[in-house]
Design a protein around this nucleic acid. Structure first.
Lengths: 332, 332
DNA sequence: TCTCGGTCAGAAAACGTTTGCTGAGACGGC
DNA sequence: GCCGTCTCAGCAAACGTTTTCTGACCGAGA
């Protein structure tokens, strides 16, 4: 029994001839090692848990897909949970994953503040990496440089001749939304002293984008550009504009964030920020494995750079000509 | 030890006073039962595996979300795998899930034929439910009545005055695509003898929709309507039409299938079929639990009805007036 | 008073691996 | 030729539960 175990898990050297005999017999019998028993003995399940705030937001499926792929390469499996944007559910899920003896946790928290307790609890018992959204400044985090990304958008819009801006965003309880908002404010005020008065905070949904755009329409005159904290907000806004026969980009430019499918599917196609989802995922998995390997490691945070993707929705007649771009992910 | 186990798993009656003492102490100590050990002993992990062909297609995140919610209600967890539309990967994933000792498997197979072997292998060792896409006629399946759904689309289009049709679809190796195609052919031919010659088969992507529409444009005259096998195809097609200044629905009607976010986000909004995702998920979970409870149960298949959602993309000037519809999922 | 049931707590044997330890055998050095 | 060292296969003890079985205790009936 011991010998078979050593052969199959490759942990210890076994006489090659005997090893071969074991291999052959195992195959003939269709034997597969029982991972539950192994997990119990080794105290490691080769499984990691992931909690995302909402799979309905197309950014997260992309992340999940990339994470799952990265994990598979190192033969880990993924226990996935959707918190439904609810902090209480999120806390429950973390506890549940903990009970499942996952080796580590990847979490994109619902709320910068309200999720702290759950995150801290989890981090005290498990290697934990925050991905995209964060609650704990001193714990490991993998995300993108939001300020730089927003800066690129505003630079581009300025280049297109835009001088007044409105901003559609979720409530800044979401860390990424908060960072983007900060960046927007500090950059936009330089171009437009009134930008601060045209912030529309709701959530990350299509609906909120739609509703916020209606409010912008009511508060005419229109700004030169409506900057949105994600693609869902942006396509929602464009829908409302279309319903009111306001043409994008002629009457107003619109930009998104994430470069999801929506950005290409909408008419006009959306200028947005492409998040480096693959890198995000592989960096998170790498960091998590490192933390699992040595739990005493200090927290490590990584900020990746995201790139601007220019499409139709921001190309104004007066601006410099820029060739539109197709995408996302080389989809076109 | 035995008493504690009995109290915490509630399996056997224990003197209430003693039970209370156990509960209190357990809480004080922060004791949580180790699910790996329990799984080893009980030979049941309370975990089910799910394999989807591609999380990039927004239909699947919706299903995954619903399934995860339904499972959580009965305190099961979800081990999620994305096959990336690759039958070999899919087979590997099934084996891996099997090794993980999942109690059951939910699978939406990549290929009607090529996935059969993997599905059969899995079904021989585990309770298995096919969801949405299927490979094995005699194994349990939960999906929608594709013929009825396509019928509703064609009835609606006919009512709008459409008499000639083109059809954009993935290669019929995907079971749902194949069923939709069959339904399209049998229904459309009654209205348009040439419908059979305007079938454009590729895959379920935005890109294919785009490419197929270009081909349709090259083969003028345009049909009255372009029916698409899913929303991705449809928005891809609409994008191509827009690029060529063909107006939807004025010059040609377009319809989708799935009622994903894309349907509302596109301009014009898309007439499509709403899949009953919640029901699909809860039915699948119910069926799976039944099969886990009694593996000798005969396979059971369920066909749910999907409903037509009329929006702008199919409303032609000549047709009867129908009020457009918002959505999806009450999103508006 | 003795016996027979019935209730319920605890002892111990599983569940299927991994791994420290033991000891057999081979081999080399003195 | 003997001893020490090294390699490597097998024994058995874990890992943390659940569950069968055992047996103590109690009450009731004879």
């Amino acid at each position: 029994m011991a010998t078979v175990s050593r052969v199959l898990s490759g942990s210890h050297s076994v006489n090659p001839e005997l090893a071969a005999r074991v291999e052959v017999t195992a195959r003939r019998l269709g034997y597969r090692t029982n991972r539950v028993a192994r997990a119990l003995r080794r105290q490691a399940t080769q499984t990691i848990g992931m909690v995302v705030p909402d799979l309905t937001n197309p950014f997260f499926p992309a992340v999940v897909q990339a994470v799952e792929g990265a994990l598979r390469e190192v033969s880990f499996s993924l226990l996935l949970c959707d918190a439904g944007n609810d902090v209480a559910v999120e806390a429950e899920l973390v506890r549940n994953l903990f009970d499942h003896q996952v080796d580590g946790l990847l979490i994109s928290v619902c709320d910068r503040i309200a999720s702290r307790q759950a995150a801290r609890l989890a981090a005290s018992r498990l290697p934990l990496i925050q991905i995209d959204r964060r609650a704990l400044g001193r714990m490991s985090y993998v995300g993108v440089d939001q300020a730089h990304a927003i800066g690129q958008i505003l630079d581009h819009l300025a280049q297109q001749g835009c001088r007044s801006f409105a901003y559609i965003t979720p409530h800044p309880a979401i860390s990424t939304a908060s960072e983007r908002l900060e960046a927007f404010l500090s950059r936009a005020r330089a171009l437009d002293p009134d930008a601060g008065s045209r912030i529309y905070a709701g959530d990350f949904s299509f609906d909120w984008g739609h509703e916020a755009a209606l409010r912008i329409l009511r508060a005419r005159p229109l700004p030169d550009a409506i900057v949105c904290a994600n693609d869902l907000n942006a396509v929602g806004a464009m829908q409302a504009l279309r319903e009111h026969h306001v043409q994008v980009p002629r009457d107003v430019a619109v930009t998104g964030f994430d470069d999801t499918l929506l950005a290409v599917a909408s008419g006009p196609q959306l200028t947005t920020i492409r998040q480096p989802v693959q890198e995000l995922a592989s960096e998170a998995v790498t960091a998590l494995r490192a933390a699992i390997g040595d739990p005493s490691l200090p927290p490590r945070s990584t900020e990746l750079q995201a790139g601007l993707v220019v499409r139709e929705s921001s190309l104004r007649a007066g601006g410099d000509r820029v060739r539109p771009h197709r995408g996302p992910d080389g989809a076109q």
